[in-house]
Amino acid sequence: MKNITIIFSNIKGGVGKTTLCALFASYLAEKGYPVIAIDADLQASLYRHRQREKDVASDTQIPWNVEMLDTSDSDKLVQVVNKLKSVPGIVLIDCPGNLNDRNLAYIYKSADAAIIPISFDADTVDATGIFVKALKSVSSADLVFVPNRINATERKSEEIRQREQTTGYLGLVGTVTPMVKQSVAVKRYSTLYPLEKNQTEVLEPAFSRIIEKLNLSK
């Protein structure tokens, strides 16, 4: 299949971008898509997670690869990103929540799509707006917003109004997927083992919408 590069990013921490990146990689692999995940975050949470799992289960077959990407060396970064664009499959890049690293602009420019996890609190909405403005100044990537870890039982009128208002605004600049409900199942992830049934049930509406929107073909 042709190459498609998808970044996971937002400057607001705690929205679950690394977790969603890993879960989406597993979901794609189980659907038969060739996929590789790139950890471009200084914290290397995704890469370290894979290493810990391999240490415990060294004989387990790896369903998708995880590689580190050093963003501090601009020349090397350009070389690696150019090479990733030639990969015949889906490249997922877990980006740091940082607008101060100028080298990240090259990753943003290379992206075909940006998956942006959000929540509906005021701080996250404001931060997401800032991030989208910065991203659109350097990238033509399709924007896909994933409301993540949402407490679907909240029925206060002000919270419902805030959700509808935010969804309407974001829908003007990109695609908003169905909500990923708050659940213990999606707070944890494995980079080696298949998705659990309850994980798939929670994630399917959002992930299938992403596949549909991006017209991903095998």
Rank of each mutant, 00 (worst) to 15 (best):
G14H: 05
Y47L: 07
V91D: 02
G14F: 03
Q51K: 15
Q43T: 01
L20Q: 14
Y33S: 10
N65D: 14
V56M: 07
V56I: 15
M68F: 05
I36R: 15
I36E: 13
L69N: 12
L69R: 14
V80Y: 10
V35H: 13
D39I: 03
I38R: 07
S58Y: 08
M68V: 04
K12H: 07
L46S: 08
S58F: 09
A44Y: 09
F8D: 01
C21G: 03
A37Y: 08
D70T: 08
G32E: 05
L42K: 14
P88D: 07
D70N: 15
A37S: 14
I62V: 15
P88N: 10
K54L: 12
A57I: 01
I62M: 11
E67T: 05
V81C: 08
K12A: 06
I90D: 02
N65V: 06
S45A: 10
Q79A: 11
H49M: 04
F24G: 12
Y27L: 00
K83A: 04
L69W: 13
S58E: 05
L28E: 05
E53N: 06
G16C: 07
P63L: 11
L77G: 04
I62E: 15
F24C: 10
S74A: 14
D55K: 15
K85D: 09
V56W: 11
Y33C: 08
A25P: 08
V15S: 00
T18P: 03
D70C: 07
D73Y: 12
P88T: 01
R50Y: 00
V78E: 13
A37W: 04
L69G: 11
G13S: 06
H49D: 01
W64E: 04
G89M: 09
S72W: 09
I90M: 03
I6R: 09
D55A: 15
T18L: 04
V35I: 10
I4W: 01
N65F: 06
A40V: 01
A37T: 14
T5Y: 01
A57K: 13
I90T: 07
G13M: 04
D70E: 09
Q79N: 11
R48G: 01
R50F: 00
T60Q: 12
Q79K: 15
L46P: 07
F24R: 13
I6N: 10
F8P: 04
T60M: 06
E53I: 03
L84C: 10
P34H: 12
T5S: 02
V66E: 02
K31E: 11
S72H: 14
Q51M: 09
L20F: 08
S72V: 09
K54D: 00
V78M: 12
V80W: 09
I7C: 14
T60K: 14
Y33V: 07
L69D: 09
D55P: 08
K76R: 13
G14D: 02
V91Y: 02
V56D: 09
R50M: 00
A57V: 03
N65W: 12
N82C: 00
S72F: 11
L23E: 12
Q51I: 05
G89E: 06
A40W: 02
A40H: 02
S58M: 05
H49R: 15
C21V: 02
S72M: 12
L20I: 14
D70V: 10
